[in-house]
Design a protein around this nucleic acid. Structure first.
Lengths: 187, 187
DNA sequence: CAAAAAAATTAACAAATGATAAAAAATCAA
DNA sequence: TTGATTTTTTATCATTTGTTAATTTTTTTG
């Protein structure tokens, strides 16, 4: 049977005690389409992995809903600026589809780091990967045109079909109208 | 006398053996203005902390020099997409000014993680902060206007005066001409 | 210091993107 | 299924940013 540990093992194989301890703080949760998983203004104290379905991190800028991040199969989803600082964040998490999540309480996990060096290493490596993804995305936003960014997204992300275009637009840093225009210009 | 450990201690206080082991792999290096510290195309195997002066991460997109990152006093500077993957990167590091750096060999450091849990924790926390900074910058690039981004940079970064405007322009994702226009429009 | 080179500004026009409104298409809910 | 709602597209015009080129200012170097 499939388990998140198959995925963890591809990153770093932890010893059995660590695995057991981690196992004990993992909970499975299900969300319906469009359900708010974590509210805007809350603190990030949960580390989610998408088991099925998908979710997004979003916030409002001048009343406009902006999608900052997408997550699908096996992807991690956390609001880093809160998780790693303890500060509340103006970002929320919402299910894009009917979604099953694995949820890890971050405070419990961080405590386990003291007893299980292996867990600290596993999650260090997981978050390093996430950090690298963020740098790549930065690069894309900094100097690529909206059209380039859209084509790149089509190219690198499976599941694009599952995402409403209005979410994709703000993710790319443009308006839905602009995205329509760009799509119309591609044959 | 001032030491980088004063800074490290504000993040996480490591035990004496760890401190000693880390001390042994720190080297001080000096660079002259505009000197290339790490060449484009190389692998990132060094973690730098700026002791004095400043540096930037840059790359070329369609022949145009783009600055991705600035670092000044006490700031960390690494090319994460290479450091954490082992892959070569198309980005380089250049001194903006006469600069003194503390340089840590990353391979040696990563090996020390096995013997010194404390060091793994210290650097995990350091890179988590850096990750949070990157997320903030992403937010800025995704939906703020060039003028907003410029004002934000003025507001949050000391040392702006030390940076040539051409570097600032590409950092903001705009051309130098555009930046001049924005500056002309501020009274 | 003076000449040369590099950086920054200004101007004029082009291209990309935003804003608003209306129409068409897709989705949702009774 | 059907009417209502939401999403996407299309169109028009405004604004922002890019491009090129010329000019001014600053920095570098002999």
């Amino acid at each position: 049977m499939w388990s998140i540990f198959d995925f963890f093992d591809t990153i770093f194989r932890v010893n059995d005690q660590a695995k057991q301890a981690l196992q004990e703080i993992i909970r499975e949760k299900t969300y319906s389409k469009n359900e708010i998983i974590q509210a805007i203004g809350s603190r990030c104290r949960t580390i989610y992995f998408v088991k099925s379905g998908g979710a997004r991190i979003f916030y409002y800028k001048d009343g406009t809903d902006i999608t900052e991040h997408f997550a699908f199969d096996n992807d991690l989803i956390v609001r880093a600026e809160s998780l790693f600082t303890g500060n509340p964040t103006s970002k929320g998490i919402q299910a894009i589809d009917a979604t099953r999540m694995l949820a890890i309480d971050s405070e419990k996990l961080f405590h386990l780091y003291d007893q299980h060096h292996d867990l600290e290493r596993l999650f260090r490596l997981i978050f390093e990967r996430e950090y690298v993804n963020t740098v790549k995305r930065l690069e894309s936003l900094q100097f690529k045109s909206a059209k380039e960014r859209y084509l790149e997204l089509l190219d690198t992300t499976d599941f694009v079909q599952k995402i409403p275009l209005k979410y994709i637009a703000s993710y790319l840093g443009i308006t839905p109208v602009s995205l329509s225009r760009i799509r119309a210009g591609i044959d």
